[in-house]
Amino acid sequence: MGLSEQQIERYSRHIILEEVGGQGQEKLLESKVLIVGAGGLGAPAALYLGAAGIGTIGLIDADKVDLTNLQRQVIHHTADVGVEKVKSAENKINAINPDVTVKTYHQWAKADNIREIVREYDFVIDGTDNFAAKFLVNDACWFEKKAYSHAGILRFDGQLITVVPGQSTCYRCIFGSPPPVGSVPSCSQAGVLGVLAGVIGSLQATEAIKYLLGIGDLLTNTLLTYNALKMQFRRVNIKRNPDCKLCGSEPEITELIDEEQPVCDLEKD
């Protein structure tokens, strides 16, 4: 397709990188990334992926911007309070980089809609804030054979892992199923350091770009945890679980289900 003069300038710092180059940048411009949840994790991921020139970015979120979001969801501005999050995010991405096509899905990701959306993309970023959604994204990506980056944050702790279905440990390999109701507090109950979302969401964007370009070592079979107070990163090696209900040798889950127990109670607002 060839880069325009403006694109050469815009992406010059990528092109200079030995591992990216003009061909790598063209690959990014042809890539599609879906971000599930335009909140704390999705915000930095969407900003950086937009700036990087990911050709198509999909955003799923049914929520509207709330004043309490602004402490960490940096893609939304004060003036956006009350605006659909996907719309608000779309505006910012467009403002940063007109090369990017933004597709918005103003709905919650559910068992009955997520597979057909995921199918359109090359990589998925899980920026959701509740266990049910996290398992749903994991399962959908498994069924659609799409690589994705899982992440979660609470208080001062974050974690992430990259899943390449069929090749590496999936979210269910590790956690099996959602925890009992009430056993884990939500962000709104326990609090979260705003910048933590920026750190972890940016790492997710990094994984997306590496995956799309086929460079470096992905965070597969490795859970990376981060504690902001101790400023400590830890890599935990994890093997695939042969008994995994989803990707194990005798899978029990053969279709998508909507898990219960929404953690952050968003739908009640």
């Binding site: 300038e9 010059s12 092109i15 200079i16 003009g22 061909q23």
Partner: peptide
């Protein structure tokens, strides 16, 4: 610099 290298690299590719 660095646009000259950027363009040279694109030509090399």
């Amino acid at each position: 610099c660095p646009m000259n290298f950027v363009k040279a690299k694109l030509a090399l590719e």
